[in-house]
């Protein structure tokens, strides 16, 4: 296991370097720049700005300097929000996005797994159909529609929740529900499909014939095996949902980093784009590593370290 983790770390650092390089090239390839504006700036002003942010250095030098900075844990300044650093953006925004994400993942797991189990156990009966119709509507409706609807119904028509902004637990209800819709639907479908498959396996039949209670069979034997695809899905899900959703954060005026990311790209805020990309990549890799490790916890037969013999 230790060997596996070390090898993983090395390959992840290499991958990170590639991500930084690709993104660096990409941000400098797309047209525009952090100081582009509808009102054209005089040349001298533009030169001063480029001087200040070292944008007139050759690209390779900017790249090397940037890497040197990143190694020290400093993601540099934002180019558009001149007096703020990328680290500040993450420090302020990430806890907010992560809180919302955690709530949404919790909702998705509880509701999704419950719906999935009910549907699988009552396969092709009305409970199944109902659960799956709910799930289908859940993922047919993208988050911006769900968010707008929730706000319209529960903040505008029936005023039980605040419209937007962040601060009290009541502020978190509508956005986390909106954020949870899609993963809930996805998880319930995955659980249903896999449960049906698992319930046909021989060891479940054996357990049944041994006279074990249905409860034990479902939770101890079936669910444990049916959950594997959900765990796989959780890695990227947590990585993306914890780093914020642009749409939800915009609609509910939540000061997370999901919104920053998109705004950074439209602003061509090179520092912020790169910094947030690195942050996201590290987070994603860590989550995937945890997922892979948990495979062998759930299913001891899975061995990650052995190659194909």
């Amino acid at each position: 296991m230790g060997h596996f983790i070390i090898r993983r770390l090395v390959s992840s650092i290499l991958a990170l370097l590639l991500i930084i390089t690709f993104t660096f090239i990409l941000v400098h390839m797309v047209p525009g720049g952090p100081f582009a504006s509808e009102k054209q700036l005089p040349d001298s002003v533009m030169r001063n700005l480029e001087e200040k942010f070292h944008l007139n250095d050759p690209l390779w030098l900017q790249y090397v300097k940037y890497l040197g900075q990143v190694v020290k844990g400093d993601l540099g300044p934002s180019y558009k929000y001149e007096n703020r650093t990328v680290n500040e953006f993450i420090r302020h925004g990430f806890p907010v996005s992560a809180t919302l994400g955690a709530l949404a993942v919790a909702i998705a797991l509880v509701v999704g797994i419950t719906l999935g189990i009910i549907a699988a156990l009552r396969q092709n009966r009305w409970q199944d159909y109902l659960a799956m119709v709910i799930a289908t509507i859940g993922f047919s409706a993208p988050s911006f529609i769900v968010a707008s609807l929730l706000m319209f119904l529960f903040a505008y028509k029936i005023k039980i929740f605040p419209t937007a902004m962040w601060g009290t637990p009541a502020h978190a209800v509508l956005p986390s529900l909106a954020l949870a819709t899609l993963p809930t639907a996805f998880i319930s479908r995955l659980i249903r499909a896999n449960m049906i498959e698992v319930l046909q396996q021989d060891y479940i039949k054996t357990a049944r014939s041994k006279g074990l209670s249905e409860r034990v069979i479902i939770y101890k034997h079936a669910l444990k095996n049916a959950i594997l695809p959900v765990v796989t899905y959780l890695g990227p899900l947590i990585a993306s949902i914890f780093t914020g959703s642009f749409v939800i954060e915009k609609i509910f005026a939540i000061p997370g980093i999901g919104r920053d990311f998109v705004i950074a790209i439209t602003n061509r805020d090179y520092g912020l784009i790169l910094g947030l990309t690195i942050f996201y990549a590290v987070f994603l890799m860590a989550m995937n590593l945890i997922v892979d490790l948990s495979y062998s916890l759930i299913d001891p037969r899975i061995k990650l370290t052995r190659g194909e013999g």
Binding site: R7, F22, P236, G307
Partner: peptide
């Protein structure tokens, strides 16, 4: 998944690299 080991290591890092590069940038390009 089937070959596992080094193959898996490399192929999964490629997936991570691709999913980390901002989609919107790629779209604009």
């Amino acid at each position: 998944g089937y070959f596992g080991g080094k193959v898996d290591e490399v192929m999964m890092r490629v997936v991570e690299i691709l999913s980390s590069i901002p989609f919107l940038l790629w779209v604009i390009l």
